[in-house]
């Protein structure tokens, strides 16, 4: 009986060596439409190298340690443009900057260690008004609670950057969720664009122990 079933299944299925070919073809059919869609997403004027415009949206380079990518080869600069060689190379200036546990540059530490001294106005004659005022968000489910430190943010920003357009200055007045953040709202206006991204290093925000977890 089992022998008959085996023979039958062997007849239905192709010889198993062919499955590799199927997988191989499948890889390419799944890989190709992605590239094609990216080419379609780019406007009508195409560069001479379609491969470069096809992949721009997936690029990631969090100023990774040990990675040296010259500006002319980074995929968004035009290597035929002579002026690109006049621009400062990123790894030249950021080699010594402190990094967080994910290898992303920790700009708060960079500022506090005095490695950089960014101007506070166009001419550098203004001062910042840092406020030391933490907010703890406790509606985080099973995740550790979120501590929002005003101090670190007001060393870079002024109140009007966030309030009242991005965050209503009212306790519990902002329905913040990870979904909204990843879609670029609330914290996601900066985190995920210039500040460290919400998809890496959860613990930098979710840093306060959650009592619900400790009891378990």
């Amino acid at each position: 009986m089992t022998q008959a079933m085996n023979q039958r299944s062997q007849k239905i299925l192709p010889a198993w060596g062919w499955w590799h070919v199927v997988a191989f073809v499948a890889c390419f059919t799944f890989a190709l439409p992605g590239n094609a869609a990216d080419i379609d997403a780019a406007p009508a004027a195409q560069s001479s190298e379609p491969g470069i415009t096809a992949v721009w949206s997936r690029g990631l380079h969090f100023q990774t340690e040990g990675e040296v990518v010259p500006l002319a080869e980074d995929g968004i600069h035009d290597p035929d443009n002579d002026a690109v060689h006049l621009l400062q190379e990123p790894y030249e200036s950021m080699a010594d900057f402190p990094r967080d546990s994910q290898g992303i540059i920790d700009w708060v530490q960079t500022l506090r260690q005095g490695l950089i001294d960014p101007r506070m106005s166009l001419n550098g004659d203004d001062i910042m008004y840092p406020v030391d005022f933490d907010i703890i968000f406790k509606n985080t489910g099973s995740m550790p609670h979120v501590r929002f430190p005003h101090q670190q943010h007001t060393e870079w920003l002024t109140c009007a950057n966030c309030h009242p357009l991005i965050f209503i200055p009212q306790k519990g007045g902002n329905p913040i969720s990870m979904s909204a953040i990843i879609q670029g709202e609330y914290c996601g206006v900066c985190h995920g664009k210039v500040a460290f991204p919400p998809t890496m290093n959860c613990g930098r925000c979710h840093s306060v122990p959650n009592q619900a977890n400790l009891r378990r």
Partner: peptide, 14 residues
């Protein structure tokens, strides 16, 4: 200095 045809975008944005 960008590659011609590169659309407006934020590199590496989530």
């Amino acid at each position: 200095s960008g590659n011609p045809g590169t659309p407006t975008h934020f590199h590496g944005s989530t």
